[in-house]
Amino acid sequence: MLKEKKDTDVGRKNGTETNVKKAPFGNSISVKRADLFYGDFHALKNISIEIPSNRITAFIGPSGCGKSTFLKCFNRMNDLVEGCRISGEFRIGDVDIYSDATDVNELRKNVGMVFQKPNPFPMSVYDNIAYGPRTFGVRKRSQLDEIVERSLTQAAMWDELKDRLNKSALGLSGGQQQRLCIARALAVQPQIILMDEPTSALDPISTGKIEDLCSQLKEQVTVVIVTHNMQQAVRISDKTAFFLLGDLVEYGDTEKMFTMPHDKRTEDYITGRFG
């Protein structure tokens, strides 16, 4: 019976039923002339980029090049960093996300995030998934049940976890924890999901599962993924952006970039000749 449910278009069906309000955000990202400083350090320099909807965009580059920092601008997680100043125009859909009128929490609801290290909360699997919806006012048990099932199904974990919903999430394996975090992010039905090196702490099988998941997800959401693994970028992304020392060096279709990079620095990096 549960299988049957999975076969139907659960996402859309529940989307209307559970009344999780769609916000006025779109699912494409547009950035113009962004600069970011940590104190005196100029971490991102004059970056402009258009990230298309329902595609996977990968950010690559060596450590410290600013790609994770840039990613965190999209859901304003950089607000939490002391001494971080941002200028430029960040739009998601038509909304300027740094304007005073923007509700940060509403923004983050629409722009989900998955972190480098799996960070499930120290509570049950069920409560982890239900955390987001509860935050936005869903209280009814039946609705929450549906959301949990839908999210886990979207993350392809329902069968694995349906008997362990009340067990602590910290008891899961690393890969499971990371997919649970994706499911948790999906529970509030975001239009964009940011992934900050989501597989760097995982084994190849778990990595594979998450990559598959990403490819499925782009039907519904825009995915931006930061990765150190260039094969991964090639495997899953539609577009790739290469960052170096706070500059956006090159941005384009993944296939093109990895076969015919415009910039010498990009070429050096993707061929492993980078110093």
């Binding site: 939490l80 983050r108 960070n119 499930p120 909360f121 120290p122 935050t135």
Partner: peptide
């Protein structure tokens, strides 16, 4: 761990909710 706080905030939970539902219980 700060990752708990980040996780909660990234889901759109406010500070209060993060404190009461994630940080304090932990």
């Amino acid at each position: 761990p700060d990752s708990f706080r980040e996780g909660s905030l990234a889901l759109g939970a406010g500070k209060v909710r993060t404190i009461f539902k994630v940080v304090l219980p932990s």
